[in-house]
Simulated scan of single mutants.
Amino acid sequence: MSMVEPHAVLGVVSVALGMVLSPGPNMMYLVSRSISQGRRAGVISLGGVVAGFLAYLTAANLGLAVLFAAVPEVLAVIRLAGAGYLLWLAWRTIRPGGASVFTVREVPDDSPLRLFTMGLMTNLLNPKIAILYVSVIPQFVDLGAGHVLVQGVVLGLCQIAVASTVNLSIVLAAGSVAGFLAHRPVWLRAQRIAMGSMLGVLAVMLALGGLL
């Protein structure tokens, strides 16, 4: 862990937190399952989502470690692409007219295997996560510190830890939150504005090459 700088870990944790708290396919799927089929279904679905994170972690680092060692300049392009995506995500979060992820939706009950598989596929097909691993996390890798592959794995595991913890909390609280927000649109707008603003700030800092 010594080759991974604390500021890199903090940067990845900040980005991961902002992204996991913004509405996206993973959150919508986990919330819908938890509300309609119960917490157990939500936890099983989350297991599939975590498996998807591990798949991205493995694939991205095995390929990117070689690429960045050979062409360091690619990091600059990746940083700008990641910043652009974070800005787009911030706008989608704040823009008026967006639906709440905590809106109760009717979905059929599924078996544990299907819940896990759907969680896995939802994450694997989620462009938000693909870009996170290809464009955002790699910019925190310090080529001068060596052990590029190890750095990528450690930083990826930090992202997975944050996403898993937050998503588990969302799964366990989804029913209560849905009921609370059902008649409190002001609270819902405040949450969206706060998360969108956080993503916007992270995007600007990332674009300037000095995130944390």
Rank of each mutant, 00 (worst) to 15 (best):
L67F: 13
F68C: 14
F68I: 15
A70V: 13
V71Y: 13
V71N: 14
V71D: 10
V71A: 15
V71L: 14
P72G: 04
P72H: 09
P72C: 08
E73A: 15
L75K: 07
A76D: 15
A76W: 08
V77A: 05
V77C: 01
I78D: 05
R79A: 09
R79P: 11
R79M: 14
R79K: 14
L80D: 09
L80C: 03
L80P: 03
A81H: 11
A81L: 13
A81C: 15
G82H: 11
G82F: 09
G82S: 12
A83H: 10
A83T: 12
G84R: 02
G84W: 05
G84S: 09
G84D: 10
Y85S: 01
Y85E: 06
Y85H: 06
L86R: 00
L86H: 04
L86M: 11
L86F: 04
L87V: 02
W88D: 00
W88M: 00
W88Y: 05
L89F: 00
L89S: 00
L89H: 00
L89W: 01
A90H: 03
A90Y: 01
A90E: 00
A90D: 01
R92E: 02
R92Q: 15
R92H: 04
R92K: 14
R92C: 04
T93N: 01
T93I: 00
T93V: 07
I94M: 07
I94D: 00
I94P: 00
I94K: 01
P96G: 04
P96Q: 11
G97C: 07
G97N: 02
G97Q: 09
G97W: 02
G97E: 07
G98F: 07
G98V: 10
G98E: 11
A99K: 03
A99G: 00
A99R: 08
A99P: 05
S100C: 04
S100F: 04
V101C: 14
V101N: 03
V101K: 03
V101P: 10
V101R: 03
V101L: 09
F102E: 07
F102V: 13
F102A: 07
F102Q: 14
T103C: 08
T103M: 07
T103N: 08
T103F: 07
V104W: 02
V104Q: 11
R105F: 06
R105T: 04
R105P: 14
E106K: 11
E106M: 14
E106H: 05
E106T: 11
V107S: 05
P108W: 08
P108R: 07
P108C: 12
P108Y: 15
P108G: 10
D109Y: 06
D109H: 06
D109G: 06
D109W: 05
D110C: 15
D110I: 12
S111W: 06
S111C: 06
S111N: 06
P112A: 09
P112H: 08
